[in-house]
Design a protein around this nucleic acid. Structure first.
Lengths: 147, 147
DNA sequence: TATAATTTGTTTGATATCGAACATATTAGC
DNA sequence: GCTAATATGTTCGATATCAAACAAATTATA
């Protein structure tokens, strides 16, 4: 029964469950115009609002393909949560800035996401949580090695 | 910097990296007609080929939404890897059966997936791997509780 | 300086994923 | 037996995701 021992399968299952749970929780709080991914990106932009953040930074932060970034950010801009501004220093770059609308949804979204994060580790000791986190970092490192 | 400590974010990142790595590995071996998800489902059907497997079982095994199952299995049937057969005992059910084409791709696909699984845990001791697996089971359980 | 390599972002067509609304079939409760 | 509840699968419209092919800007190198 290789499936039930496969870490890859297990991670995919958890990732799906997690996204579903987070979106359900957000909808329940009335946050139904944005997705979890938007929430995470808004959070990232908020935390780094003093610095310049470009699309390539989102790409690295979330380990997603460049075309995925374009797609998601275009939607977020259309919905009015961010602006993508050209910078004089380098014509290739687009600087990402939260709109006031984006700032407004930030707090609620983060709270909702963190609620589910708490559920996720409920019943785990501090030590277990740290262990899990460290092991996940290790396998992420393995995956990011050139193949 | 909440993002870098967030387990949810970490799991999403790993899940994306893993799918990309597995698809790259499959393509490199010439398996370019099916996806990783197809590979996993074919593996599941192969392991349970002595039993009756219905769409609802795939739904439970992979923790994905019903509509997702319909979508994926329709594509797999169109491509000729499975057949969805009606059963006399219950008109709601569709029994899933691997075609000979499906049987043929099974071995190569599984090998490719397992190669990446090995890369994933390279550098982890047996004990660490077991620990990771157990902790993931725990958080999966947390997520599957009614919310 | 001119050309090659790299970096950054876009477009396109494909698959995976979801919830909501739906259609049938079966089972449970009265 | 009838009606309500449950189970199973589908359709639809939306978002996330990818690779490949592309375009334009910048940097490296010869």
């Amino acid at each position: 029964m290789y499936q039930t021992c496969s870490l890859g399968h297990e991670i995919r299952v958890i990732s799906n469950l997690l996204r579903r749970r987070m979106e359900t929780n957000m909808r329940r709080k009335g946050i139904d115009k944005i997705t979890v991914m938007h929430g995470w990106i808004i959070g990232y932009l908020y935390e780094h609002r003093q610095e310049d953040v470009f699309q390539k930074d989102v790409e690295a932060q979330f380990s997603i393909a460049r075309s995925t970034v374009t797609n998601i950010l275009q939607l977020m801009e259309k919905k009015g949560y961010i602006q993508r501004m050209e910078v004089p220093s380098d014509a290739r770059l687009k600087k990402l800035v939260l709109t006031s609308e984006g700032m407004q949804v930030h707090q609620m979204t983060i709270c909702s996401i963190e609620e589910v994060e708490q559920d996720l580790i409920s019943g785990l000791s501090k030590k277990e949580t740290e262990c899990l986190s460290a092991l996940l970092k290790k396998i992420e490192y393995n995956l990011q090695l050139a193949c």
